[in-house]
Design a protein around this nucleic acid. Structure first.
Length: 447
RNA sequence: GUCCCGGUGGUGUAGCCCGGCCUAUCAUGCGGGACUGUCAAUCCCGCGACCCGGGUUCAAAUCCCGGCCGGGACGCCA
């Protein structure tokens, strides 16, 4: 049976397989460093204790070729991990061409673009694969978290007829002669499920955004963790779940991903709880003290978000909530105060009079960048219709969605958390593309 | 989408401002050779590059224009 390099014990005969990471030839002595998913092991060939054929294979083999080694593990203080393999047989499973498109040993750095063009090889670097091992672990922790709390995992459609918030940022496609779009959020569907009695749902899925942004912080294909809960009292209930989720992920990573974190130079991910919660109004005050003047009703700028992080950092916080945003900065489905028991015209009138009315909404910022946003949603049909109208959206396009609000929709709310953004802030990655195996951005469609 | 910066061997770079001595630097890599304890092995020999198109000039890697591609900032968002 094949073993990984971290499972080897002295004095046993083993079979290991992997890539030739390094080759050092000293005349009658050759060292091969074999790399597999879990680490490295040195294969030592002394001309006097291996047969000529094996020695010749080792001497000829090109770097990054795939080999299988059968041999005896022995203790050797002079070997990198204190052990080495003396091979009985080396089988070349597939040899690698030369030269290599980049250097997996990281002696010579490579630009991100070169790395992404040759992502399969970039991922051979332990530092890079560690990111994706952590990503996988996060998804596992998240699923466990939600299941433990009675959430049901769902999948909503990727192909949709209308956008959830407008039309501009959608990728259009041809659906048997009809226009359709790729989903940019599960928003409308997860809300409809609140009328289904499933009660608490979550979804981990990929979404598509056709924005032509070009930053280290945006992708055109993203993966998000979404949740929606019925029978909440306010957005505070949702914030509580989100906070618990984030804290659970961080704590469990610290426990279970020590090896990967240390490869990335992280001793322990730090999180101070409880997460502070400040209102939009309070954020504006703080920013004013920092000399950043924002108009009431304006969303926080990048500069403002950075300053706010400086403020919280002084208090020792990396993660914090900003809540109760004014209505005009938020999507149409966001709950605002005073919307109950009114006719659509009355509500529309109310919004027109005060478009900066407080909503039950929040963003979660991590090290100065937004990783999640959520809210209590409007569950009252009349208010939803008024809100759509106020935002200039066509009520008919939302017919199928609005139906769900007519026959018993409980109060509800939820959030969306961007996995790539979370991972990026968690691991201090400089570019969000580092957090995706094969990123899709404005110019990149391959590999 | 707007603005700023960039594109040199397989990879990462020096040279560009101030055009000529660039037959282009250094490292790594690759090919060959020497070497029995390396761990970025060492030593010797060799290989390999100026993004594309146009212009200026006696002369362009170097200056100008356009394109494509890349890096970053902003807007917007997860």
């Amino acid at each position: 049976m094949r073993k990984y390099t971290n499972e080897l014990k002295p004095n046993e005969e083993v079979e290991v397989a992997g890539w030739v990471h390094e080759k050092r030839i000293h005349g009658k002595l050759i060292f091969l460093v074999l790399r597999d998913r879990e680490g490295f092991v040195q294969v030592t060939l002394s001309k006097k204790d291996v047969d000529e054929e094996t020695f010749k294979i080792a001497k000829k083999i090109s770097k990054e070729s795939v080999i299988k080694v059968i041999g005896i593990v022995r203790n050797e203080p002079k070997a990198p991990n204190g052990i080495e393999i003396v091979p009985k047989k080396i089988i070349v499973l597939n040899k690698a061409q030369t030269p290599l498109p980049l250097d997996p040993t990281e002696k010579v750095p490579a630009n991100l673009d070169t790395r992404l063009d040759n992502r399969f090889m970039d991922l051979r670097r332990p530092r890079i694969s560690a990111i994706f091992k952590i990503r996988s672990k996060i998804l596992n922790i998240v699923r466990e978290f939600f299941h433990k709390r009675g959430f049901i995992e769902v999948h909503t459609p990727r192909i949709i007829a209308t956008g959830s918030e407008g039309g501009t940022e959608l990728f259009a496609l041809d659906y048997f002669g009809r226009e359709a779009f790729l989903s940019q959020s599960p928003q409308l569907y997860k809300q409809m499920l609140m009328a289904s009695g499933l009660d608490k749902v979550f979804e981990i899925a990929t979404y598509f955004r056709a924005e032509e942004h070009n930053t280290v912080w945006h992708l055109n294909e993203i993966t998000a963790i979404d949740c929606e809960v019925a029978f909440i009292d306010s957005h505070e209930d949702v914030m509580k779940i989100l906070e618990e989720l984030v804290v659970t992920v961080i704590n469990r990573l610290n426990e279970t991903s020590k090896k990967e974190l240390s490869i990335l130079g992280i001793d322990e991910i730090y999180v101070k709880t409880p997460f502070p919660r400040i209102s939009y109004d309070k954020a504006l005050e703080i920013l004013n003290d920092f000399g950043i003047k924002l108009k009431y009703g304006e969303d926080l700028t990048t500069e403002a978000e950075k300053k706010l992080y400086e403020y919280f950092k002084q208090e020792g916080y990396d993660i914090y909530f900003i809540k109760d945003y004014p209505y005009i900065t938020r999507p149409f489905y966001t709950y605002f105060e005073g919307l109950e028991d009114k006719q659509p015209e009355e509500i529309l009138e109310m919004l027109k009079e005060n478009p900066k009315i407080k909503t039950r909404s929040f963003d979660l910022d991590y090290k100065g960048r937004e990783i999640s946003s959520g809210s209590q949603r409007i569950h009252i049909y009349n208010a939803l219709v008024a809100s759509l109208k106020f935002k200039g959206l066509r009520v008919e396009s939302f017919k199928y969605y609005l139906e769900a609000f007519k026959y018993g929709m409980p109060p509800h709310g939820g959030f969306g958390l961007g996995i790539e953004r979370f991972l990026m802030q968690l691991l201090d990655l400089k570019n969000i593309r580092e957090a995706v195996l094969f990123p899709r951005d404005r110019n990149r469609l391959t590999p």
